[in-house]
Structure formats: C-alpha cells, structure tokens
C-alpha cells in the first residue's frame, strides 16, 4: 500500500472508531445528557428519586399562586398530560408567565411538591412581531410555546 493510502485508511478508521466510541458513551450516559425530566416521567418514576433534578414543561394557566408579602410562589408545570406543583422562593425570569416553557431545578419533596431553588424560562424557536402574534391568537392559534 502506498503511504498516502495508508495514512488515509488510518485516519478514516480512526475517525470511525472514535465516532463509534463517542456514540456509545453518549448512549450510555443518555440519562445524564437529558437537561430535564417531564412531569410524566417523574410520575412514572423514571426520574431518580430523592436526587436533585430538573423538571421542564409549561406553566399551567391560572395555576400561579403567590404568597403576599414574600417572594414565595407556587405553580403547576405540565407536559399537557401530567402536571407537578413547583414551590419556589426567588426572582422569576422575565419570560416567566402562564403558558410559558420553564425548567425548575430542585428535588421532589415528600408531599409530591417539587421544591425548586432555581427556575429558568425556556424560549421556543419562534420569533414574530407582536402584531403577528395577536393575529394568530385572534384566529384561534394558541400562543403558547410547544413542548420540545
């Protein structure tokens, strides 16, 4: 074999092996690659119990309850199938609103309430001017972010 051909073979096979190894590692650590669990997964017991984890979904409409005089807030996060109540005390991000995608970081408490110490808003991939959004809503399209 010519040296050039040998080098090409070495590099190609090296890259193929590397790609395969990476794919295997990523598959093995799939649970750790997930940024958040859905409420359905938590209800089904897929998520590790008692450990810190993130739950993601939409803030359910009319579910945000604030405690007057404090930063404490409770709301339900839903994946349109199951929902879980999140308790949080702190400043919520600008994009936080009902119907918005959020990711809460914390752990599931004994009473089934998710005790969050961090709540991040999740933006979807849609961009449009306010007039277009209003028009869509008038025509009956929901303005809500869809689930990932």
């Amino acid at each position: 074999m010519k040296p050039r051909r040998r080098r090409m073979m070495a590099m190609t096979s090296g890259l193929v092996c590397l790609a395969a190894a990476t794919a295997l590692v990523l598959t093995a650590f799939e649970q750790n690659m997930l940024y958040f669990y859905t409420p359905t997964e938590i209800a089904a017991g897929v998520a590790p119990e008692g450990k810190r984890l993130r739950v993601g979904g939409l803030v359910e409409r009319d579910s945000v309850r604030r405690t007057p005089g404090s930063l404490e807030v409770r709301f339900d996060v839903t994946d349109l199938d199951r929902s879980i109540t999140v308790a949080y005390a702190g400043v919520l991000p600008d994009l936080f609103r009902e119907g918005q995608g959020v990711v809460a970081h914390g752990r599931v408490g004994g009473n089934g309430v998710f005790e969050a110490d961090e709540v991040l808003a999740r933006h979807d991939e849609n961009y449009m001017p306010p007039e277009v959004a209003d028009m869509l809503e008038e025509r009956g399209h929901p303005r809500d972010a869809s689930l990932p």
Partner: peptide, 11 residues
C-alpha cells in the same frame, strides 16, 4: 434535538 435542553431548537 437529541436531548432535552434549555437552549431552543433550530429556527
């Protein structure tokens, strides 16, 4: 696309 993420999907 493969994993749930905080970053939004492609536009």
């Amino acid at each position: 696309e493969w994993w749930s993420s905080l970053h939004q999907g492609p536009t």
